[in-house]
């Protein structure tokens, strides 16, 4: 059992949680993830390790299904049944020159830890964070503190540049040389944004989030196509060369359990509404 040390809401449906997990905290590096099982009958879901502090790690998640909704009900002092990690390979951080770290939506959760690692490796770090609207924008202060420059975009123009992170990236690429780019966000956003860097031949990493079960290389559920070969995101990734990733396949496989996910969530809502009188 792993204790929740602090739980706060960052934005609509977006939550941040610090949990006591020394085995993860003492070994985790930027880009790695952990697997959470909330309760005894729970499923195993992967979440990015978004910050490390002593014996604790931070996770940030959006409520998209039963498990994340359940996780969001936990408060300080509550227990999470299982946390395994750190899993996956760390980000390939080295001194590239100028780096851009781009976070989209809840994917911004992974941005500061990578930006910090890139910064301490001696890079000039440009941060670009984008969300649908100003209310959904998270970790702005944190990104500002660890990046040399920070750009903000919103789809509706309620804050920063009106548009997508991809637009800002394109404008910057036209102005100057960027040596390495990390893009973390929804699959479609990573597909579109990495399409921008391709003609400039910029080394671009994306962090993939396919469906996983064990997260240790045992089941093959998270297999993705990278450069025409099958790779397991849990042990060979989660970061891959963006220009080699088959994003359409990733999105197709992410939809495998859509029906079941909806069913689980509906049942959970019916159940929790009758218990708590709704929220």
């Amino acid at each position: 059992m792993y204790r929740v040390l602090k739980a706060t809401q960052l934005a609509e449906r977006v939550f941040q949680m610090w949990v006591f997990a020394p085995h993860v905290a003492h070994h985790a590096k930027a880009g790695q993830f952990l697997i959470v099982r909330v309760h005894e009958a729970g499923e195993r879901i992967p979440l990015t390790i978004s910050a490390i502090d002593g014996d604790a790690v931070r996770i940030i998640f959006m409520t998209v299904g039963k498990t994340t909704e359940l996780l969001a009900t936990l408060r300080q002092g509550d227990m999470i049944r299982d946390i395994a990690g750190p899993l996956g390979l760390p980000s390939e951080v080295s001194k590239y020159g100028t780096c851009a770290v781009i976070g989209g939506g809840v994917g911004i959760a992974s941005a500061p830890i990578i930006a910090r690692a890139a910064k301490s490796a001696g890079n000039h770090v440009i941060g670009i964070i984008g969300a649908r609207n100003a209310g959904l924008l998270i970790l702005e202060d944190e990104m500002r503190a660890c990046c040399d420059e920070l750009f903000i975009t919103t789809d509706d123009g309620s804050k920063g540049v009106h548009g997508f992170a991809a637009d800002v990236l394109k404008a910057e690429l036209e102005k100057r040389t960027i040596d390495c780019v990390w893009i973390i966000g929804p699959a479609i956003m990573m597909k579109v944004t990495s399409g921008i860097t391709r003609p400039y031949n910029v080394k671009t990493f994306v962090s993939l989030n396919p469906i996983m079960v064990d997260g240790t290389g045992m089941c093959g559920s998270c297999r993705v196509q990278v450069g025409g070969t099958t790779r397991f995101a849990c042990v060979d990734g989660p970061e891959f060369d963006a220009h080699l990733v088959d994003f359409d396949l990733l999105m197709q496989r992410q939809r495998t359990y859509q029906t079941e996910e909806r069913e689980a969530l509906e049942q959970y809502h019916e159940h929790s509404c009758s218990c708590k009188g709704g929220e």
Binding site: A41, E43, M218, C219, G220, E260
Partner: peptide, 27 residues
């Protein structure tokens, strides 16, 4: 979608009890 390694299929059912979905959360 619908192609499994035996490891995945068996892990989902034996270890995660997907046969009892949605009582157990793994489908």
């Amino acid at each position: 979608n619908g192609v499994y390694s035996a490891n995945e299929f068996l892990t989902r059912v034996n270890f995660m009890h997907a046969d009892q979905f949605p009582v157990f959360d793994t489908p």
